[in-house]
Design a protein around this nucleic acid. Structure first.
Length: 492
RNA sequence: CGGGAUGUAGCGUAGCCCGGUUAUCGCGCCUGGUUUGGGACCAGGAGGUCGCAAGUUCGAAUCUUGCCAUCCCGACCA
């Protein structure tokens, strides 16, 4: 492994790609556009998943699992949804291979094993789930259904990037069914807030909660709520979405229920999801030229203890101290590792754990033990301090909290500095090309204008923030009347 | 999918233009020893379908064609 990571300022996307691979989060695989999530990356995903899962359960949801394959006839039932995803679907057409008679040792698709009906590999599961819900719902007493599924989905993307956009990715998708429109909207909003809380509190990434414009809406939704995060290079990243699906899927799959008055009505729906893309957001929100910076709450490893010994005599003494410190930390639920491997010297380990973003490094040598201290280095600020061994465990535990807060505050300050108002087209362009970030500008509310702005600047409407300030103005492009500003940005 | 670039050991590379012994060097890896407070040193050693497949040739890492993958720029997207 080469030592140097490309600097962010030199080439941000190269830095990102190198960092993902060198920090051992993930690797390219033999399959086009698909990544291997390595143990370190998967441990991070598990921490994120476990916390989200807990939050879903606290809000009344349960997990279930639906098939990977969707019969084409079901997939096409909800037209807007089907159309939206049609051009990026993988399709299973056969169920058997056979020996190639012309090429020994090779296999060919058996032409006699063609499926009666093609199966779409799910790009999202609304179709198969709503087809299933049809059999589950007869009465208002069967509602609401509050189900989440942890799954993989496939979207045949033209251009892929590790975590940010892969052909197969891991995610969760919530699919809920409700008796009333109000309840479904409430659910949609509740879940976008769960996402915002998770991303801000655990991933330390500040987000803007908002609503998508009609153009950016999920295929088949009446309304799409989203959380938008800002990356260090000034580009926005959609970090999660929560859709109010109206009665579109209930109508497409004929899902009706009897209300209290024995009146038949279509069911109201929501769906919401976050994916492994969040890991991309995490990386690009916090990391630096030395490597990853992991927020302690979800870091696979929170503290690493590195021994520094001279000769074999000191090793057992250091081991004993390190092991007792580690035991105390583990008792407090801290994810800690004592790295006494002798195939790397301390300097190498320091650099390696910085690359991997471990929040705290504790260095422990005889010199320290004689003075009853250790050296504590924090990843977020790269500060090193000599700390007394008395009360070290509490100190470290508190420091983890402090680091979590500092990383968030830093990202928040950056984000807030990068929401800028533009009142003229010239200002708008200048901000996008220069400072970057979110540009708050008036827009006339039409899809045409939005499309034109996108063509001219590559910037899209990221969202219309919830509780947006109402303020009269004129659209930066068309000059027509506008009641509020919306957030534009170039995005991933 | 369109335009550009790249592909030689785990990683980074020389050689390619102008075909010709056993494919270069560094890091990493293995063995032994000395080391260990910011990516150690010495000695010995292992590791290669030169992205894949055809073709041209007495002979291909080198020339030709096709394919694949990666990166950058577009269109699409969580």
């Amino acid at each position: 492994m080469s030592k140097e990571l490309t600097k962010r300022a030199d080439n941000y996307s190269e830095w990102y790609n190198e960092l993902v691979v060198k920090s051992q989060l993930a690797d390219h695989s033999a399959v086009r556009g698909c990544m291997v999530i390595k143990p370190y990356g998967y441990a991070l995903w598990e921490n994120m998943r476990d916390q989200l899962d807990k939050m879903f359960k606290e809000t009344g949801h349960v997990n279930a699992y639906f098939p990977l394959f969707v019969p084409k006839s079901l997939f096409e039932a909800e037209e807007a949804n089907a159309e939206g995803f049609a051009k990026e679907c993988a399709i299973v057409t056969h169920y058997r291979l056979k020996a190639d008679p012309n090429n020994k040792g090779k296999l060919i698709v058996d032409p006699d094993a063609k499926l009666e009906e093609e199966l779409v590999v799910r790009p999202t599961s609304e179709a198969i789930i709503w087809n299933t819900y049809k059999g589950w719902i007869q009465s208002y007493r069967d509602l609401p259904i509050l189900i989440n599924q942890w799954a993989n989905v496939v979207r045949w993307e033209m251009r892929t990037r590790l975590f940010l956009r892969t052909a197969e990715f891991l995610w969760q998708e919530g699919h809920t069914a409700h008796a009333t429109k109000e309840e479904a909207i409430e659910e949609t909003v509740k879940m976008v807030n769960v996402y915002a809380n998770f991303v801000e509190e655990y991933m330390a990434v500040p987000v803007v909660i908002g609503v998508k414009s009609a153009n950016e809406r999920f295929a088949g939704a009446e309304d799409t709520y989203c959380i938008e995060a800002l990356m260090q290079d000034g580009k926005a990243l959609q970090a999660g979405t929560s859709h109010f699906l109206g009665q579109n899927f209930a109508k497409a799959f004929d899902v009706k229920f009897s209300d209290k008055n024995n009146k038949l009505e279509h069911v109201w729906a929501t769906s919401w999801g976050v994916s492994t893309r969040l890991i991309g957001a995490l990386i690009m929100a916090h990391s630096d030229d030395q490597g990853l910076v992991m927020p302690p709450k979800i870091a696979p490893l929170q503290i690493v203890i590195v021994p520094i010994y001279k000769g074999d005599d000191s090793k057992p003494v250091i081991d004993e101290k390190a092991n007792s410190m580690m035991a105390s930390l583990k008792k407090l639920g801290v994810r800690v590792k004592y790295d006494d491997s002798d195939n790397a010297r301390p300097g190498w380990k320091f650099a390696e754990y910085e690359l991997k973003g471990v929040p705290i490094r504790v260095a422990l040598g005889m010199r320290d033990l004689e003075n009853n201290v250790v050296e504590v280095a924090r990843r977020d600020t790269k500060e090193k301090q000599t700390i007394s061994l008395d009360g070290i465990v509490d100190y470290l535990k508190n420091l983890l909290d402090e680091i979590q807060q500092n990383i968030f505050d830093r990202a928040l300050a950056y984000r807030n500095e990068h929401i800028t108002e533009a009142n003229t087209w010239e200002e708008f362009i200048e901000l996008l090309d220069g400072k970057g970030g979110f540009v708050a500008a008036h827009w006339d509310g039409t899809g045409d204008t939005e499309e034109k702005i996108k063509e001219l600047t590559k910037a899209t409407i990221r969202c219309i923030p919830v509780n947006n300030k109402q303020e009269a103005g004129v659209c930066i492009l068309s000059g027509k009347q506008s009641r509020e500003r919306v957030l534009f940005a170039r995005a991933y």
